[in-house]
Amino acid sequence: MNDLHEWFQKNDLCPENILYLYRSDRKTVVHRMDGEEAALYAPLHSVLSVLPENLFLNISKGIAVCRSQIVNISNDGIYTMSDGRTFQGRKRGLSDHRRLRAEIGLADTQPRPMSMSLLEKCSLLDDMPLAFCVIELVFNESGHGVDFIFRYCNAEMATIEGVPVEEMLNRSFYEVFPNGDKKWLVSYADVALNGTRHTLHDYSPEVDKYLTIHCYQPEPGYCACVLQAIDS
């Protein structure tokens, strides 16, 4: 136990800066919130024994995550962390994941119908030759946007994103794109919360394209986006 405490101090680790822990090559890897990692030959349960039990969750064999840094738990038990990394939780007892999602106050990613008038308006854009989507923002306890959920996508979205529409609908961005860039979140959250409009021009590593994205608020809490690929 003392050796573990010394190892934590040597690697500048403490409960407040650990994002998640996982097993790799017979080692337990501790991933800090700044992206740095440290690994040691010790079982995961031994490392967890020196951390506050109420702060970390052992979600499956070989994976433990910081409870406060979970931004989404899907109905399939996929945990999305604040850095965009996803982990598959235990597949048995999926109801436990849903119960935990409610317990820690995460947004429900099950379809939550928008107003019929908005859905009707969106349906007019099903075959529009420009990509269009409506996303619902997910906020943490501090009110910062940490993820978003695709609530509507027209057919052209599949061309821009390279993912079938049915694989995007009602799923969080970081489920669809586990290594997705967070740079869009600030603008999307501003639109969803404040009703401002933004036009974004930037490279999207998720789809390997430069995009122009026009954003506006169709309803409070939502951001509508028109996306167009542009020449670099």
Rank of each mutant, 00 (worst) to 15 (best):
N2H: 13
D3W: 09
D3S: 15
H5P: 07
H5D: 14
Q9F: 15
K10C: 06
N11D: 04
R23W: 00
K27Y: 07
T28R: 03
T28Q: 06
R32D: 04
R32C: 08
E37S: 12
L40C: 15
Y41D: 07
L44V: 11
S46M: 12
S46K: 14
L48M: 13
L48A: 06
S49F: 03
L51D: 09
L51H: 05
N58Q: 10
K61C: 12
G62C: 07
A64M: 04
A64K: 06
V65S: 00
S68I: 03
Q69P: 02
I70V: 14
V71Q: 12
N72L: 10
I73N: 05
D76A: 13
I78K: 03
Y79W: 00
G84P: 00
G84A: 09
Q88N: 05
Q88P: 03
R92A: 14
D96P: 04
H97E: 03
H97A: 12
E103A: 15
G105Y: 08
G105Q: 06
L106N: 05
A107D: 13
T109R: 09
P113T: 08
S115N: 11
M116K: 06
S117A: 15
L118K: 06
L125F: 11
A131F: 07
F132D: 05
C133S: 08
I135H: 08
E136Y: 14
L137S: 09
L137C: 11
F139N: 09
D147Y: 08
I149K: 04
I149A: 09
F150S: 09
N154L: 02
A155G: 13
E156Q: 14
G162S: 10
G162V: 08
V165G: 14
V165D: 06
E167N: 09
M168F: 10
M168D: 05
R171I: 14
F173G: 00
F177P: 12
P178G: 11
P178I: 07
K183N: 11
Y188W: 02
A189D: 03
D190K: 05
N194S: 12
T196S: 15
R197W: 03
L200Q: 03
L200R: 01
Y203V: 07
Y203T: 08
P205N: 01
D208I: 07
T212H: 04
T212Y: 01
C215Y: 00
Q217P: 03
C225S: 11
I230D: 02
